[in-house]
Amino acid sequence: MRIAVVGASGNIGTALLRALQADGRQHEVIGVVRRPPPPEPPYDAVLWHALDIADPVAPERLAAIVAGVDVVVNLAWGFQPSHDPAYLERVGVGGTRAVLDAVRTAGVGHLVHMSSVGTYSPARSGQRVTEDYPRDGIPSSPYSQHKAAAERLLDRAERDAGEDLLIARMRPGLVLQRAAGSSLLRYGLPALVPAAVLRWLPLLPLDQQFCVPVVHSDDVADAIVRVVEQRAGGAFNLSAEPSIGRREVAAALGAKAVQLPAKVLRGAADLAWRLHLQPLDPGWIDLAFGVPLLDTTRARDVLGWAPTVDARRALGELIEGMRDRDATASPVLRRRSTREQLTDLLTVGPITRRRKS
């Protein structure tokens, strides 16, 4: 098959490239990213095109790139600069619109879109939902609102295209792998904080109500490959067991959990974010305490999918990857350098304001 992957060099994209090259598969893969990676595994067997999906000319250029492919997989999304939500909306929602326009123009009949547990409306702590649960997102989370808005674009596209376009929506929980360690450090820790701090964290201040679904990147990639090769459509929840709560996070960090009410944590995160002392907007706290757990029955029944990595192991891999600053050759997953971050902070400003991440 000829497969175009938009956003092919990030966390999920890197895992997908590994999966598409496994078991003697002979797929032709076209990668569309803002900054193509160097020709090292698993990026060396891909025909790369440089394109910023937020660019106004993206639909026209992308249509030419995907002409003649069997399926387009859209993984493109932005997480920084968190102080520029309008730009993040142009990447996530506008990028989804660009992909849909390109797919229609090129006459591609199958689209696989990377959605998220974040597309779902708030739920009770520990509540498990199927794919028909309301999809209005967490109101105070820009990420969640953008994911929900992107899915509304898919709804309209399905109605307009009818049988001419089959759309699959992947809705994973938090997607983790070791190789994403440095990348998530850049997004989650202030520039001045070294990765080594994660080895000496004595306490984990977190509300006991914390409970989120988690899945390994390789298992998400496996689900996408199954959707592509089976030409499947519809929505698919993806997560592993058990759900991850405060106890599991504390165990993975080797820290002692202490009660900190979510409201207090949010207030501290909000103040630190507004002062540019940490890069995550407070909506991520609301997301962490508002998303449901996921019923994955449909993925198991329709795709024959099941996670191969349990959630505790996926979390442990990620934390080890963060401690070791694990990385790949991709610009997105490159190794975190405190010196580089400090240089960028002094020359081009904090990551929360700049578009280089």
Rank of each mutant, 00 (worst) to 15 (best):
R2Y: 00
A4K: 11
S9T: 12
V29R: 08
V29F: 06
P37D: 12
P39H: 01
H49A: 06
A50D: 10
P59W: 02
R61V: 12
D70G: 12
V73H: 11
Q80K: 09
L88Q: 12
T96C: 08
V99G: 11
R104S: 08
G107E: 01
H113L: 03
H113I: 05
S116A: 13
T119P: 00
S121L: 06
A123Q: 12
R128M: 14
R128V: 15
D132I: 02
P134T: 08
P142L: 10
Q145E: 09
Q145N: 13
D155C: 00
L165N: 07
R169V: 14
R178Q: 12
A180I: 03
R186D: 14
G188R: 14
Q208N: 12
Q209T: 08
V215C: 05
S217Y: 00
D218G: 11
V220P: 07
E241F: 00
P242H: 03
I244V: 15
G267V: 07
F289W: 12
L293G: 13
P307Q: 09
P307H: 12
A314W: 10
A314T: 11
E317N: 05
D324C: 06
V332C: 03
L333Q: 06
R339H: 03
E340R: 14
T347N: 03
K356F: 02
S357Q: 08
